[in-house]
Nucleic acid binder design. Structure first.
Length: 411
RNA sequence: GCGGGUGUCGCCAAGUGGUUAAGGCCCCGGUUUGUGGUACCGGUACUCGUGGGUUCAAGUCCCAUCAUCCGCCCCA
């Protein structure tokens, strides 16, 4: 028996209503804020990710599905910001009047050990905004995420906020971090030793118990809590908070929120649920002012976020499948075939029993699946009539078939 | 990549070395040639993830392997 590949899941009909709901709400919320949908390829040149996402990240180092074709290295997208940025540059979207606001949905691929809330193929909904450096843009994005989650009916979510500063202040912070951690270098875990060289900011993200103990140290706490960001970055961060307050969006500041993607600067945020187990981030995002330029475009400020749809789905209640408008009960399968076709052409959902089973069995099926039963038995056929039985109100009327069809077309 | 749990029908499950592998849901048929989900009766696993081994005897014990779940790491 061939099984679905490890870490992939079938989205079955019983769950599809939830997925339609998530997609429909995303479309509504995004277009209400003038974000336009974009669809980019599911695979891209490997270089796009190694340069865009950053080669100090786990995503690029060990989680990419990469394959060669005609001496080209291609990779199944592990996230979609790099792809959207590529499309933005390639299609000359910098010529559009800024800000350019885009949203997307689709599958992403990461080669990881599957776990609750973590799959190798998973789906994201995300937004990207280009060409606006104002903190308003950051807040518009965060607000969009919060509005969307609210629209889905999700409560008990926490927004966490941090600022990573700009290139300049980040470099000086990195230098400071290295200076402080130098003493503890032998005690740090293996991963952190690598992080020390490549990106010491990510040491703060380490969950290793021993490293956690080291973080308790006074000088380190002082450094973590110090406002290393420069005046301009601080001003930006304060404005973001002010606008969030204006909107009544609650958030908590988390100085250890660093994020594993290299492209972020200034504002970063996550939205978490405590009903999710250890993979508790439902949304993650931030500002990435350097990425467009790094990928060959003009220097363009940008902000965005992505949400994991499987994680959202697991927080949503199950939805009942929509009922059929009609279920035809009949012993004459030929007449039924024709009638079903006519009703479907008029735009209604119809089904019927293919095997011409007994009346009681067919009625049973109608009760389970439809709003109305259409009875087309010997009596009706003889008089060219049809009986419409409303299964909810428990009322029924018999009328000429012509009249029934005419009635359908009228609605 | 590392640690732990679990694999018996489509789903939930009993079974703890000894004849023919409970039960429930769903599905199918009947009681009932045309009007309400009830009730009652009947049907659906040549076999317990797979391969070895131990034993007179294995779903039950051992080993391996695969799958899956949970945690670490990382992220959505």
């Amino acid at each position: 028996m061939i099984q679905a590949p490890k870490g992939t899941k079938d989205i079955l009909p019983k769950d599809i209503e939830t997925w339609h709901f998530m997609e429909k709400m995303a479309e509504e919320v995004c277009s209400s804020a003038n974000f336009l949908e974009i669809r980019t390829p599911t695979f891209e040149a490997t270089q796009l990710f190694s340069r865009g996402v950053g080669d100090s990240t786990d995503i690029v180092n060990k989680e990419m599905y990469t394959f060669e074709k005609n001496e080209r290295s291609l990779t199944l997208r592990p996230e979609n910001t790099a792809g959207v940025v590529r499309a933005y540059i390639e299609n000359g979207m910098s010529r559009l009047s800024p800000p350019v606001k885009l949203w997307y949905k689709g599958p992403m691929f990461r080669y990881e050990r599957p776990q609750a809330g973590r799959q190798r193929q998973f789906h994201q909904i995300g937004v990207e905004m280009f060409g606006e450096s104002s903190p308003l843009a950051d807040v518009e994005c965060i607000n969009l995420a919060v509005s969307y989650l609210k629209k889905l009916g999700l409560n008990d979510l926490v927004v966490e906020l941090n600022s990573l500063g700009c290139k300049e202040c980040r470099e000086s912070f990195k230098t400071n971090l290295r200076a402080v951690f130098e003493k503890y270098l032998p005690e740090l875990c293996e991963d952190c030793k690598v992080r020390y060289e490549k990106n010491p900011l990510r040491i703060l993200d380490c969950k290793n118990e021993n490293c956690g103990k080291i973080f308790q140290n006074d000088t380190i706490q002082k450094l973590i809590n110090s406002d290393f960001i420069c005046g301009e970055c601080d001003e930006h961060y304060i404005s973001v908070q002010k606008y969030l307050d204006d909107l009544g969006i609650k958030y908590s500041k988390n100085k250890q929120l660093v994020r594993g993607l290299d492209y972020y600067n200034r504002t970063v945020f996550e939205i978490k649920s405590y009903n999710l187990g250890s993979q508790n981030a439902v949304c993650g995002g931030g500002r990435y002012d350097g990425l467009v330029e790094m990928l060959g475009g003009e220097s363009t400020p940008a902000v965005g976020w992505a949400m994991g749809m499987e994680r959202l789905a697991s927080l949503l209640p199950e939805r009942e499948p929509e009922r059929l408008d009609y279920f035809i009960i009949s012993t004459d399968t030929e007449k039924t075939l024709i009638l079903a076709n006519e009703i479907r052409s008029a735009g209604y959902k119809v089904d019927y029993d293919f095997r011409g089973r007994k009346f009681a069995k067919q009625l049973d099926k109608a009760i389970k699946t439809a709003k109305n039963a259409l009875i087309l038995g010997e009596d009706e056929i003889a008089k060219d009539e049809i009986t419409v039985k409303n299964l909810i109100k428990s009322e029924q009327t018999t009328l000429k078939k012509e009249a029934f069809i005419k009635e359908l077309l009228k609605k």
